[in-house]
Amino acid sequence: MIRSTTRAAAVPLLLALAGLAGCAAGPGAGPAAEPRPVPAPAVGSPGFPPSAARARRQLAALRVAWGEHGETYERGAFGETWSDETDAPGGRNGCDTRDDVLRRDLSGVRVGDRNPCVVLSGVLRDPYTGEELPYSFRRASRIQTDHVVALAAAWRAGAWAWSPERRLAYANDLDVLLATNEETNHEKGAKTPDKWRPPRREYGCEYGRRWTGIKAKYGLAVTPPEKRALEELLATCG
């Protein structure tokens, strides 16, 4: 009798729990949203950065001039936020630019189940220092997105005369961007290679190639000391 009573009492309890579980989704709840398709990888332009030989030719052809209009620079002139709505390499794939950079530059990347654009974790081998840095979505500011030729440096070199659309494209061009650690990014700031170089000397060649390639791609000028510094960096390529 005791077992039978216990079994009978359990039935209404199970039905009540099932009803609560059904109500948890709220009225009118439908099936769970389907996961978004994995976006196409964004890596930038094919063949970028240029080879050392090509970079040397590009550097020789760059306009040499002192910076202008530095006092009028404003970050907002390049767009207020990351944008996917540009025709720059990697644009229009459904992910914002920062997530594209993280997916490209980090190893062991884990992305969101529902939104595969969002990088939850991974490891960065910082190109400027060689350090291995863990990335976590919850502490995202530890790894930042660096404009190799900083926006302020591009402004002084000619971007002050560009249209807003061209400046937005520059700010979101994956060829211009690298993931790096917060401290190094702040130390670099808007300095040109005559005032700052990566602490990791082995990266000097690629840094010179990237910097020169960006200046050539966008028709930006170099100052005389900047050009000499780039020649020195490219000389390390062998």
Rank of each mutant, 00 (worst) to 15 (best):
C95A: 12
L106Q: 01
G158L: 07
D105A: 10
R166A: 06
H147I: 02
R138P: 00
A152E: 10
V109T: 09
G130W: 05
R139N: 13
D96Q: 09
D105C: 11
W155Y: 06
A140K: 06
T97Q: 08
A154F: 05
W160E: 09
P89G: 03
V119Q: 04
W155T: 02
R98V: 05
G112F: 14
R139D: 14
A152W: 01
W155K: 02
N93G: 09
Y128K: 02
P116C: 06
T86W: 07
S136F: 14
T129M: 08
L133P: 04
V123A: 08
Q144R: 09
W162Q: 00
V149Y: 03
A157W: 05
N115C: 10
A159D: 00
S121P: 13
E131P: 01
W160F: 10
L106T: 03
C117A: 12
D96F: 12
G94A: 14
R103P: 01
R138K: 04
D113K: 12
R92T: 02
D105S: 05
S163L: 09
P127A: 15
R139K: 11
S141E: 07
A159E: 00
C117N: 11
S136Q: 15
W155V: 06
D100V: 03
A161D: 01
L151A: 07
R125C: 14
P89F: 12
R103I: 05
Y128D: 07
W162A: 04
V101R: 00
V101E: 00
R92W: 01
S141T: 13
R139L: 07
E131H: 11
G112L: 11
E132Q: 15
S163G: 03
L133T: 11
W155E: 04
A153Q: 04
H147C: 01
L133M: 10
S136V: 13
W162L: 02
L106D: 05
T97Y: 01
S136L: 13
D96H: 12
S121T: 15
W155G: 03
S107N: 12
W160Q: 05
F137I: 12
A159W: 00
P89I: 00
V101P: 00
A153K: 00
R166F: 01
E165Y: 05
S136E: 15
R166W: 00
A153M: 11
T97D: 06
D105T: 14
R98K: 14
A154V: 03
R110H: 15
R104V: 07
G94D: 10
V118L: 08
G130S: 07
L151F: 04
V149W: 01
G108S: 13
G122W: 06
C117P: 09
A161S: 10
R156Y: 02
R166Y: 07
S136N: 12
C117K: 10
R139H: 13
E165K: 06
G91R: 04
T97H: 07
A157G: 03
G90N: 08
C95Y: 02
D146R: 09
A159S: 04
A88D: 03
W162T: 00
R103E: 01
V109R: 04
G91F: 00
E132H: 12
T129P: 01
